[in-house]
Design a protein around this nucleic acid. Sequence first.
DNA 1: TTGACATAGATTGTTAACAATCGTGAAATG
DNA 2: CATTTCACGATTGTTAACAATCTATGTCAA
Lengths: 217, 217
Amino acid sequence: MIVERIYKAVMEQRLAPNTKLSEARLCETFGVGRMRVRRALLLLSSQGIIDLQSNRGAYVSCPDKSEANDVFEARMLIEPPLVRLLAGRAGDAGLQILSEHIALEDSARQGNERTEVIRLSGEFHVKLAQASGNVVISRVMHELVTRTSLIVGLFGSSGNASCPDDEHAKILDAIHDHDPERAESLVITHLNHIQNGLNMDVRKPPLDDLASILGAS
Amino acid sequence: MIVERIYKAVMEQRLAPNTKLSEARLCETFGVGRMRVRRALLLLSSQGIIDLQSNRGAYVSCPDKSEANDVFEARMLIEPPLVRLLAGRAGDAGLQILSEHIALEDSARQGNERTEVIRLSGEFHVKLAQASGNVVISRVMHELVTRTSLIVGLFGSSGNASCPDDEHAKILDAIHDHDPERAESLVITHLNHIQNGLNMDVRKPPLDDLASILGAS
DNA sequence: TTGACATAGATTGTTAACAATCGTGAAATG
DNA sequence: CATTTCACGATTGTTAACAATCTATGTCAA
């Protein structure tokens, strides 16, 4: 699916904000007609991943300080009750998946695969939502995490583009122990760490090569 | 905007679940080309308002018990922290709007304008989110409320299609008094009232006249 | 040199014709 | 009479050509 390809590129911060996504370019890149491309762009714009400017084309969304705060506030609102819920009814299958995911994160970190680490780091939060079995919450988290990836790319100090190392494991532990309070507290701390790693004042200049960025997906 | 028209029809429960929305019909109804219609349908489907079946057309979404539970669970997850947030930082402008909205609800109730009452009843929750000033949360709530409208139409005992009478006012009072605990508690009660007014076992048969439903919007 | 303006190229928005798919109903067969 | 098959009509999916809009370049004048 073409939408997923662009999603993934954004999640791995290979597609910088403000990059122009021209229809013609996407058509030849993905080898599909303009209709498919336009449909994908509309979908992406409805989720705030790209901005669709009338008669001017599609640009990777470039959140300002205000939008960034909104996204983090939304996550701060949703994720604590979410892990609380998970600590209550933890499905064995879900816990298993989360545990395996953390293993993937570790292995990618040790292999120094930067983009992989960044993407997996975000995906953990999505899988957290999926572990609840609630498809509505999962969709919302998917959108929030993707936009967070854009924000981190824009405002992040280059060092910590991913989540702090072992916090995911600690959260999972708390859930596994059926300890809602601890899980909630850990998530709040975790989100604060991510947000504090940002510098909301300087916005990195957007670079736009776009050439074969989408190829290796 | 064509999307808003369909939104409104769903919110007022004039468009029953499972109603087929054929492209040709919508084209002549709104007097636009097929492109606009298809774009609107794609948008609506991405928000779970309609189901887009390949080569078969668009049908107003018909949530099953599981999806209904997911929507309510999501609202139960999001709205309590939301009003808590609002009780903390209540913008005067926002409170004013909410207050006026409740007045509208009352007036519609006294005028026995059924569809109006139903729509306003749902919109209150959206405006609650808007009062936070957070556009991300607002978008999420908008989607959740619309889908709730579908669910109530499907599973609701005919009496209480709208929210219980004065609970909205009580919630607003608590927010106005900067009392997070009370506001949260009232919202939880309120959501429970809505959910308890449903009968998850019998699903009303979907009727599909569709004739001039969309006209009077 | 700088500014406005016009023209040309490129890009997006729209339309209409065509292709593919599905549902329905009639006809044929057991 | 029931069941399967086939063909037709209707509806959606796709494509390609056309129209509208914007950006950039180059020219001319102040």
